[in-house]
Amino acid sequence: MILETIINHLPYLFGGLWVALQLLTALLAMGFVLGLLLALAEVYGHWTLRWFGFAFERVFRGIPELVLLLLFFYGIGEFYAIEPFPAAVLALGLKSTAYQSQIFRGVIQGVPRGQMSAARAIGMSKVQAVRYIVLPQALRQAIGPWTNEFSGELKATSLAYVIGVVELTRQGRYIISSTQGNILVVFAVVALLYFVVNWLGNRVLYRAEEVFAIPGYGEKS
């Protein structure tokens, strides 16, 4: 009976998983672009940009995801009608931006300063040196710590159900309500789906880290 219930409701669970993956992709992409820009501003920008990056990172890293979701959905909703999905992307995406900015800042600062000096010495502008010398190395080194961000944000998508995003966790709640039970089994299946996606994603990222590893970088002589 329980197995039949799960099988019958698998399409709904997979539908919720698809929404969760869309949310994950959107907020990670937003965090990647804005986080990289923020990191560049903190490392190479004017002191005002560095202070802005510092303040942004401290604020959004210091506020829980759940509070951000409620703040963006209900707070912005008082002035402008916003749907649950974009509200979740904004809230979780800005949170991811704060974390990713620190990942990128760390790997950018990890590139030896002598390489920037050498690039400038052969006639490259600062922008060219960052684009062609620093970033290609830094982004390859960022893949390792970025796996943690992937895992963290995947789990954070489950919080979006509190503002009405019909993702995997909320679909699980719907199934429990409609069947009036099976709490342990339904959430066990939900947990399994999260685990599988997390495992697959990390496997891909670990493989990418191996493929794009810089030969000799960080190895002991």
Rank of each mutant, 00 (worst) to 15 (best):
F32A: 07
F56S: 08
P112T: 01
V67Y: 09
W51T: 08
E42G: 15
H46V: 02
L28W: 03
F72R: 05
Q100H: 08
L37P: 05
H46Q: 13
A98N: 09
A29T: 14
V111M: 05
L94E: 11
G31L: 10
L36Q: 05
V107Y: 05
F85T: 07
F72G: 02
M116R: 13
L71T: 08
L69N: 11
R105S: 03
R113H: 11
T97K: 05
A26H: 03
I63V: 15
G93P: 10
S101E: 01
G93K: 10
E42I: 01
L70Q: 12
F32H: 06
L70S: 14
F73E: 05
G114P: 07
A81Q: 12
G62D: 15
G93S: 06
F73I: 10
Q100W: 00
F32L: 07
G31K: 06
L49V: 13
T97L: 12
G53Q: 07
G31N: 11
F79Q: 15
L37R: 02
E42T: 15
L36P: 07
L92H: 00
P84S: 06
V43D: 04
V59W: 02
L37Q: 01
F60G: 05
P112W: 00
A87Q: 01
Y74R: 12
F79P: 04
G45H: 12
W51R: 15
R61T: 14
E57S: 15
E65A: 11
V111Q: 04
W47I: 07
F85E: 06
L37M: 11
M30S: 12
F32W: 02
I103Y: 03
I108Y: 10
I108L: 09
R50T: 04
P86L: 01
V89N: 11
I108W: 10
T48R: 00
A87I: 11
L40Q: 06
P64Q: 13
V43S: 12
L37I: 01
